[in-house]
Simulated scan of single mutants.
Amino acid sequence: MKSRAVLAAVLLTLASVARADAVSALRDFAREVKSASAQFKQTVNSPDGKRSKSSQGSFEFQRPNQFRFAYSKPFEQLIVGDGQKVWIFDPDLNQASSRRMNQALGATPAALLAGGNLERDFTLKALPSEGGLDWVQALPRQADGGFQSLKIGFKGRDLAALEIVDGFGQRSRLDFSGLAVNASLPADRFRFVLPAGADLVEQ
């Protein structure tokens, strides 16, 4: 919500309420949403803002620490967290890598959405509304997530976007659509089976 000259005091009051509600929305989301699925579009911008690339796919999670990112365009890639390990599979290379969950997750965006303890891992700060969304900044309590900043955007009480700046200054934004919460998700959605003939690199 942007303050304007007319009714500035009223608008500032409304902005303050909206920002507080965004923090509450994230806390409610972390407490009440045990599973969810959505489509996403991702835009990645270079640190200087001159180059960008786009991708899209689907996202699912189930607490605690189970998630699935399935990129479909422009290239396929699958990222699965099964609660014990995080698996990344590249069909074009027919290669998978795995890493233990406690080493790979840390205070990352996936941990924020699918992790078990929001308040333990992150410090939350309300930000001004922008682009029709109410934003919350989540700062990792331990700087081990490999990123500089993380923002979460809500439209009302619904998760709408994530914006991440990584350790190199690269900015990624995911916009979600078709969000379905607390739906029953098959257990095999969060189980990775190495395809026949695929190489595996364990980290």
Results as ranks from 00 to 15, higher is better:
residue 70 A to H: 10
residue 160 A to K: 03
residue 5 A to W: 11
residue 130 E to R: 15
residue 149 S to R: 12
residue 69 F to S: 00
residue 41 K to I: 11
residue 175 D to W: 03
residue 55 S to P: 04
residue 195 P to R: 14
residue 17 V to I: 14
residue 192 F to E: 06
residue 135 W to R: 06
residue 108 T to F: 01
residue 184 S to W: 07
residue 49 G to L: 14
residue 149 S to Y: 02
residue 100 R to P: 08
residue 181 V to W: 01
residue 172 S to Q: 14
residue 3 S to M: 10
residue 162 L to R: 02
residue 84 Q to P: 00
residue 162 L to I: 12
residue 25 A to H: 09
residue 203 Q to G: 12
residue 46 S to L: 13
residue 180 A to C: 05
residue 124 L to Q: 03
residue 126 A to I: 09
residue 5 A to G: 10
residue 41 K to Q: 13
residue 7 L to K: 09
residue 99 R to V: 09
residue 106 G to L: 06
residue 200 L to C: 13
residue 115 G to N: 00
residue 76 E to P: 00
residue 121 D to F: 01
residue 7 L to Y: 05
residue 76 E to M: 01
residue 201 V to P: 09
residue 168 F to G: 11
residue 161 A to P: 04
residue 27 R to S: 09
residue 82 D to A: 05
residue 170 Q to N: 12
residue 128 P to G: 08
residue 25 A to E: 06
residue 134 D to P: 03
residue 133 L to I: 09
residue 106 G to D: 02
residue 116 G to D: 12
residue 96 A to L: 09
residue 134 D to R: 04
residue 101 M to P: 00
residue 84 Q to C: 00
residue 126 A to E: 14
residue 170 Q to P: 09
residue 198 A to C: 11
residue 134 D to W: 01
residue 75 F to D: 13
residue 85 K to N: 10
residue 121 D to M: 02
residue 202 E to S: 14
residue 24 S to I: 10
residue 180 A to F: 08
residue 91 P to C: 02
residue 174 L to P: 00
residue 100 R to K: 15
residue 27 R to V: 10
residue 22 A to M: 06
residue 18 A to R: 11
residue 199 D to T: 15
residue 55 S to I: 05
residue 31 R to E: 14
residue 14 L to R: 08
residue 115 G to L: 01
residue 19 R to F: 03
residue 106 G to C: 00
residue 37 S to L: 09
residue 192 F to L: 13
residue 36 A to K: 04
residue 74 P to D: 07
residue 130 E to I: 09
residue 36 A to R: 02
residue 102 N to K: 15
residue 197 G to K: 11
residue 14 L to W: 07
residue 104 A to F: 00
residue 192 F to A: 09
residue 203 Q to C: 08
residue 47 P to S: 11
residue 29 F to Y: 12
residue 37 S to V: 10
residue 147 F to H: 13
residue 125 K to G: 11
residue 171 R to V: 15
residue 163 E to M: 14
residue 21 D to P: 01
residue 72 S to L: 13
residue 189 R to Y: 07
residue 88 I to P: 00
